[in-house]
Amino acid sequence: MRQTSLAEGIYDLWIRTDLAAEARCGQFVAVYPKDKSTLLPRPISICETDRQEGALRLVYRVAGKGTAEFSRLKAGDSVQILGVLGNGFPVEKAKPGMNAVLLGGGIGVPPILELAKSLSCRKQIVAGYRDGNCFLREDLQRAACADLPGTEAAKGSAFWIATEDGSVGTRGNVMGAVAQNDLRPDILYACGPLPMLRAVKRYAEEKGIPAYLSLEERMACGVGACLGCVCRTVAVDAHSHVHHARICTDGPVFEAREVDI
């Protein structure tokens, strides 16, 4: 296990665990703080898996007490996790010959990395950040270009950045970068803040293409028991028999058309 800081408040944690063997992109683990004043486990997406080493990579932002505690973990420490949880990104929906566009916004960027590594079709990645602290930039670039011919042109058409302050790439959000660079997705995958996911959903509906969104909600159990983490669904959910699906077990990834966000 090791941990480094990627940018101000952003940490990169590798943990050794047997769960690495079964972890798929878009799934998450719930990490328990040791401090008993913070009882509930914190959901964190899988950023990358190393099956050979049996290790999972978690990249997270310090958002409060729990993540602040995690940021102090050092090599040799151990940490309690529950997982792997949820259904990941459906990679099989991206058929050979399709162009998949992968959108990550802010702390929604990390799971895009393992997704990119898991997709075998043509793919283009857009990562959105607040400012010039573009964490995971090199990893994403490498993943986007892994299957491409070594030409600069090919590489240049696989990875884009959008920043809110305009310091790198397109000024604005990921959808701005999609428009500016004339990306033409056949299928979309996205993880990021709610306004971004709403924009992705709208775009996908306009273009009539499938989009898979990774949603967030406050969780308690992580295993589908407490019904704390639901999102509104368009149809009556098969498990709950109401218009609510559990993000922890039925998600966190949903087809955009199925959810009311």
């Binding site: 009882l39 509930l40 909600e217 406050r218 407490c226 704390g228 028999h241 109401v242």
Partner: peptide, 27 residues
């Protein structure tokens, strides 16, 4: 079936948690 309450339904507090699930259940 009861739809339950809107989210957020969970809040962590010192030594415990608050929930407002609103008795969502399939009937």
């Amino acid at each position: 079936p009861w739809p339950g309450n809107p989210t957020p339904r969970i809040a962590e507090v010192y030594g415990g948690m608050l929930n407002a699930i609103g008795l969502q259940n399939p009937g």
